[in-house]
Amino acid sequence: MRILGLMSGTSHDGIDAAVIEFAPDGDGLTARTLFHDSTPYAPELRARLVAALPPSPTTLDEITRLDALIGRAFADVAAAAIARVGGVDLIVSHGQTVYHWVEPDTGAARGTLQLGQPAWIAETTGVPVVSDVRSRDIAAGGQGAPLVGLLDGLVLAGRAGTPAALNLGGISNITVVAEGADAVRAWDIGPANALIDAVVQQRGAHPAGYDADGRIAASGRVDEALLRVLLDEPYYRLRPPKSTGKELFHPEYIAAAQRRAGTALSTRDLVATLTELTVRTVADAAREAGVTELFVSGGGAHNPVIMDGLARALAPVPVRRTDELGLGGDEKEALLMALVGWCTWHGLPASLPSATGARAPRVLGSITPGAGPLRLPEPRAMPRFLRTAR
């Protein structure tokens, strides 16, 4: 079965697409990547999207327009990907998260909103679309995130010790795989690139809008006073399962922290301090979980300041990229969406209560029919592992 996974993460920079061919492999599954690409948002669309994000005010008029415009952008990416591979059986679109409602005192998730109307994708391609993949888990008492525990648990199954997978997008999340009833645990740690990118974009420090190759951080010095204030964030003391996003970690959050610390840092020193915040919070989480090896994906995996900092902080625990598992770090989230869709199509739950905190596993998402009749196969057994191939 060929499935196109579409994903735009908390960096809000564009749309990742991956066409995955799934095939049975004994009591497991093989996932072969046929195509992968990343398409930046048009600058004017990205500017409108960023302007509508909290804590900025917005309107229902703008939300409606963005839902259609992002849906059309996803549809264009889907059509281009399908043309490259000659057809797919299913599309799974995560859409663009614009708000993740979490109660600050209890850490309970109450709702989530992803824009990118799936009807545009179905109408453009004629292919059925699975979307809104987080809401059912939240309705079942879960966080709705991170869902990547499903993929990480299957890929890391059978490895010795306590392996873990770390994704460094706008937010850092970790999956820890150990022995026992709750073998797979996953949670959002805190900001990975979200605060760093916010400073770089706000101050025009790099035309790409992020700290390319960690050069800005490498040229600055960590301010320990500000770092202490940042590390005092109550979210870090919540116990997993837990999730967070740019609703908490946004530009005004940085400004408020600097006021509390009594600092007004240069761009270089501020980026260096925020980069160290990512290293410290991830290393603390990995050590507390007893991680014995760590595999890293996402944009932050390309930042040598973060990667070298994690290697030093966690030594002798090896810190490597997920590419060594045959899982390209830049395509991982689109592959996850394809896997979620494969589960939904076959009547299988894709949420893990030990990772999200839901009352029980749930089949995720809603299906928008394509051009023809909608025919679902009989449910099948959950795969016990996943092998990746190219």
Rank of each mutant, 00 (worst) to 15 (best):
G365E: 04
D323I: 07
G5I: 12
G341T: 01
P104Y: 09
I216A: 07
V200A: 01
L265W: 09
A313S: 12
G370W: 00
P361C: 00
A257S: 13
W101Q: 08
L238I: 08
S266Y: 13
E324S: 15
A181N: 15
Y210R: 05
G309S: 13
A212N: 12
E44F: 09
V133D: 02
S8K: 00
E179D: 15
A51D: 12
L6K: 08
T388M: 15
P43F: 09
L274G: 00
I306N: 01
A181W: 14
I15N: 00
H346V: 06
D132K: 03
V155Y: 03
I82Q: 07
T162H: 14
L294M: 14
D232Y: 05
E331Q: 15
A165W: 07
P377Y: 10
R362T: 10
S172I: 08
R136W: 10
G290F: 08
L49D: 06
G95N: 05
R159Q: 13
L34H: 12
V88N: 00
L364I: 01
G180I: 14
G329K: 03
A283F: 03
T267L: 09
L151I: 02
L90R: 02
G204V: 06
T59S: 13
L310P: 00
G169H: 04
V19S: 02
P241Y: 07
P207N: 15
M7W: 05
D27S: 15
D269Y: 11
G190R: 04
Y99W: 11
L310F: 06
R84Y: 08
A256K: 14
